[in-house]
């Protein structure tokens, strides 16, 4: 048995080496860097330099506020929407099921840059299809990129569009694992379809919903592409700057790796904390 393990580890060595160099070491290294002043040459150890700055930095709190706002609004809306999509996909009345499943999942496969470019075009004030539509039904045009609230809404719409189908497919898989005869028993018990959904499907799907929520929370905490590409680096005026974007700005534009590392660790800690709270709130009763 021991011999077999040794052989297995020998096969794993190339992967483990790469994993250690490009994954484990950067995690350790960035933790160490977060305690160093990196705007001086050479870098020097100064624990309070970055962490102290974080506590009093308005840019950090702006990014934190934006990230949490997106988290609080977008994640629940997206999961609710994903649930509706999953219910529709699961309906026996649906024709061309495979096509819908593909269509719902497709946004995940589309390249981030391409989809961001399309969103920019669609929401453009001058020739965007969205404003044209709004206009055609008598609503005023919205300048999505120049005002903070519409810009935030646009980020949420974009992220929701991209990930709702993905979550719907996960929820659908969960729904399909609920045995049919439980519903048949409920039907014989004269329980309506709507009540079956709220009293059977939702409770039995809870672990899957929690799974989707945790994935989404982690994703939102790291949100970068959409505010970077669609609202042009967190614009207008930092109105959509997220923690991911702040990290990027500090690390790769100002080359302040110490502060960027501190932001990165804060993001990870927040994601873990929020996830733990959520798991605790939705734990199974004994």
């Amino acid at each position: 048995m021991r011999n077999r393990n040794a052989t297995a580890y020998r096969f794993l060595t190339p992967y483990l080496l790469i994993f250690a160099i490009f994954w484990v070491w950067p995690i350790i290294s960035s933790f160490l860097i977060s305690f160093q002043a990196t705007r001086t040459v050479p870098w020097r150890f100064a624990p309070g330099f970055n962490w102290g700055r974080l506590i009093g930095d308005p840019a950090f709190f702006n990014a934190l506020k934006n990230t949490l706002l997106i988290l609080v609004i977008q994640v629940p809306v997206m999961i609710a929407l994903a649930m509706v999509m999953a219910v529709l996909l699961n309906s026996p009345l649906l024709k061309a099921r495979g096509l819908y499943r593909f269509a719902f999942f497709a946004p995940v496969v589309v390249g981030e840059v391409a989809y961001s470019a399309v969103f920019r075009l669609m929401f453009s004030l001058d020739f965007g299809v969205v404003d044209k539509l709004l206009n055609s039904i008598g609503l005023p045009k919205v300048d999505w990129f120049s005002n903070v609230t519409p810009a935030m809404a646009l980020i949420m719409i974009a992220v929701t569009w991209r990930w709702a189908g993905y979550n719907a497919i996960i929820l659908l898989a969960g729904m399909q694992s609920i045995p049919e005869d439980v519903y048949e028993a409920a039907t014989l018990d004269r329980v309506s379809k709507l009540k079956q959904f709220f009293y059977i499907t939702l409770p039995l799907l809870k672990p899957v919903i929690v799974f989707c929520a945790v994935l989404s929370i982690i994703g939102t905490m790291q949100l970068f592409t959409e505010p970077f590409l669609i609202t042009e680096r967190g614009g207008p005026g930092g109105g959509t700057e997220t923690l991911g974007l702040l990290l990027y700005r500090q690390g790769f534009r100002s080359l302040n790796f110490g502060y960027a590392s501190a932001v990165a660790y804060t993001m990870a800690a927040l994601a873990i904390a929020i996830t733990l709270v959520q798991l605790w709130l939705t734990r199974e009763p004994k």
């Binding site: 045995p179 005869d181 439980v182 028993a185 039907t187 014989l188 018990d189």
Partner: peptide, 18 residues
């Protein structure tokens, strides 16, 4: 089904697990 005056016991029991 609910109006037929029947009740059914399923092979897999079909109990509500939660």
């Amino acid at each position: 089904p609910a109006d037929r005056g029947i009740a059914m016991v399923f092979q897999s029991y079909a109990l509500y697990p939660h």
